[in-house]
Design a protein around this nucleic acid. Structure first.
Lengths: 226, 226
DNA sequence: TTTGAGAATTAGGCTAGCCTAATTGCCTGT
DNA sequence: ACAGGCAATTAGGCTAGCCTAATTCTCAAA
């Protein structure tokens, strides 16, 4: 149905999706920052994408995905996340390394290949970092998560998802046992964006700096609903 | 050591490799035909590639790969063929479908991924069509094969390799039992580029038209050396 | 209400790769 | 020896994507 999209277009659509995920518009500079291109490149691309009906552009305001653009973005995100699961569980990749590899492959794989991988994996619902995988039909689970840096001292949360870039940080987090599913009791936080101290179920504690705490997305409830 | 090559450059290098495999020069029109581009596009690319030292260009004669170009071409061919084996043996692809998928993926995979796939497969030496897989170090087996259309009537050959494009033809050949490893006795050939008749070990016969016979590469000796 | 900082856009330019049309070179048949 | 045919190259032009510099818009603070 839709024309074949270029690699660049696919990347722009993904950025817009991520930037508008909390509602509102994606800004030119936000997209530029995420894709590491200059703002005028974004303006130019936004013009083309709105001509082809993939985004809605309000000049000087920002952009949003049309239903068609959202469909394409979710397809890319599905590809990316299925690839991440496949690489980690079938080819021994470290959860820190998969992002970069998937980032290139997602533009080259066919839907057929992705569905075969998904099938071989038993239709996984989350990627190795805990991010939900859109269905082939384009539906994605929406969860209300807060970063560990925002969890009030005294409450208990479940770590659900971890930011997937930064291989080195991911490796460190894995060493610390801070992986999706971990139950964390927030016992202290230093002022002035200081570190957060959490206790794991085994009684040990971890001191998590602000920068890492912002990568740890938690469900603010001790029970493990699903 | 070498700059990252573009998708186009990788494709041109592969073409030159295939066209010079029997020795001699690759011609502009040969490359143009193989890549489905116009001849001037080839002239332009040849100029750039010889400036970057990947090919040797003799104007109005043709081109050959430099050692560096050959290394890059063999790397692409290794990627392509490992991918083909992986897709068929791990993800249930038909041997007719793998070529197209591998053609896109070969430009996106990392060497690391290819080596993990090769490892998971037990370092295969041939792809699903019987083509030899270059080693990671860039060595490839050279075999002297003739097409079935050139095998004299009365002799016996072993089918070693099958042209890998044309999914429909590959599926047909598989149905007919004409897959690498098959021992074929050539019992008849019609004149004027007519069909070749072969007998399989089970005594059944197959009539193979000229077009298909040109895709069947055989070792002209009944013994199964290696 | 105005103004100025910062964001966004327009203007203009670059490269990679492709194209068609025009030209040049090679080589073979007479 | 040379004419013609065909292969190759050059000339000139296009699009996608990127860039920097210049301009325009928005919005909040004085």
């Amino acid at each position: 149905m839709s024309e074949q999209l270029t690699r660049s277009v696919e990347d722009y659509l993904k950025s817009v999706f991520h930037l508008t995920n909390q509602g509102g518009f994606a800004t030119t500079s936000g997209i530029a920052g995420m894709l590491e291109v200059a703002p005028p490149s974004v303006s130019g691309m936004m013009k083309r994408l709105s001509e082809t009906g993939l985004i809605e552009h309000v000049p000087y305001r920002g952009v949003q995905l049309t239903p068609q653009g959202r469909r394409a973005a979710l397809q890319m995100i599905r590809r990316h996340r299925i690839l991440e699961v496949y690489l980690t569980s079938k080819l021994g990749y470290d959860w820190g390394d998969v992002h970069v590899e998937a980032e290139r492959l997602e533009h080259a794989v066919s839907d057929k290949l992705i569905e075969r991988m998904a099938d071989a994996l038993g239709e996984p619902r989350y990627d190795p970092h805990g991010a939900p995988i859109p269905t082939a039909a384009g539906e994605i689970e929406e969860a209300e998560l807060v970063t560990l840096a925002d969890v009030p001292v005294g409450s208990t949360v479940v770590l659900r998802q971890v930011g997937d870039e930064h291989p080195d940080r991911l490796r460190y987090l894995a060493e610390q046992g801070l992986t999706p599913g971990a139950r964390l009791a927030v016992i202290e936080r230093q002022p002035f964006n200081g570190p957060t101290v959490v206790r794991l179920p085994d009684g040990s504690t971890r001191v998590v700096g602000q920068e890492l705490a912002l990568l740890l997305f938690c469900r603010p409830d001790g029970s493990d609903g699903e």
